[in-house]
Design a protein around this nucleic acid. Sequence first.
DNA 1: TTGCTCCTCACGTCACGTGAGGTGGC
DNA 2: TTGCTCCTCACGTCACGTGAGGTGGC
Lengths: 242, 242
Amino acid sequence: MFKVGDLARRTGVSIRTLHYYDEIDLLTPSYYSGAGHRLYAPEDVARLQQIKSLQALGFSLEQIRDCLQRRDFSPRDVIEQHLRRLREQVTLQQQLCVRLEAIAAQLRKAETVSVEEFLQTIEGMTMIEKYYTPEQLAEIQERGRQLGDEAIRKAEAEWKELIAQVRAEMDFGTDPAAESVQYLAARWMELLRSFSGGNPGIEQALRKMYEQEPGLRQQTGVDAAMAEYVGKALAAKKGSSA
Amino acid sequence: MFKVGDLARRTGVSIRTLHYYDEIDLLTPSYYSGAGHRLYAPEDVARLQQIKSLQALGFSLEQIRDCLQRRDFSPRDVIEQHLRRLREQVTLQQQLCVRLEAIAAQLRKAETVSVEEFLQTIEGMTMIEKYYTPEQLAEIQERGRQLGDEAIRKAEAEWKELIAQVRAEMDFGTDPAAESVQYLAARWMELLRSFSGGNPGIEQALRKMYEQEPGLRQQTGVDAAMAEYVGKALAAKKGSSA
DNA sequence: TTGCTCCTCACGTCACGTGAGGTGGC
DNA sequence: TTGCTCCTCACGTCACGTGAGGTGGC
């Protein structure tokens, strides 16, 4: 026969927890002393052990009560179902880990890490995940690893310069078939390939993302007009080589 | 300018959530209409997007508020720390998965699956984890897989019979050096080896578990007296061969 | 006038932690 | 009488969901 304090000390649960279990009828003491003190019998202690075991497996107190009360209870099904849920959770959390790692990698790559850049990085990630399939993302990440942070930084700088140069030619009204534009268009395709690896699915997703995200167009300076201009330049080249 | 309903529809969050964010000062609308209706400006929408992004990474609303408010906020540290916590969680959940799988395997092995057996299995698992190291557990599991369910069931039945036979000799008062007991002791060591694989750490953990768990002694019928009796028999054999 | 949207309470969730204020046995 | 343990409220947690009851603009 134990009083709450004794049982709490012996089993490592708190007194409040025992009170609570009593309150929700999960574990009611078999006896009470004259003064209204809870007295737990050995079978109550055993039940507490069972409760703790099931709780360690991640079951809710309600599930535990069902498990200990109901006669038509199927341990096998419950365990299997529980296992499925848990596996799903683990999968989701692992995906989250991958996302966080990608963000952490981005932050390490950047030199200054302002709050604004951080938020942009995150929103960028969220946006990107809307357009690429998981397989495409894995492929892009893998290519990024092989290129290395330094090469990626360099490519980003080159894109920036290239876009500015194309914009200048457009503003100047240069014919897309002109040699200077042909050179830029070729460089454009080169950089694009180093990102997409030539995977047409990735290039298509990228195009769609630019079409549907005005913020992205504004941020990079690549708008519909530029896409058309570069497209014409590439078509002119094709035409000349055919 | 959006009213709550508009913003809710456009972003997929509930009206109640927007009310709540207002209540905890996480996202307060920039304006109010004459009738006291919330009016959200474009920058409020942007802030909501940021909140959603950070929430998707698993941050609490309080962490998000800190992140958006404080100037001395270091995104890099927060992400790394968050990642560490998440990885820990995943590890714990994966361990839990392993436990549940072991229990599921046990349940499949048994023919009848009463609630009592289920609870015993779980309590057994919990107890076992207290005595063996994770490496030892992995080794035992691996050996179990190699033996197969059928062989394990057979070994368990043999243990039961062997223990009963030893008990009978003890009750009869047979000398541990007698041939009949020598045979039983040899069989004892054989079965023990098929469990421990000869790993002395596992055998030691097993002994300690039997010493410290009265419930286990009662359940199997292997008490201190029997351990001593078998020990004497083995010593007698050693003595005779030396 | 009828819908629709908006508003502000306010309770419920899950498994307790943490006092508050008071009683009974050594 | 002094500690110690026990008791019963009852609020707080986290991020909202879900009504209840009432108001304002088309």
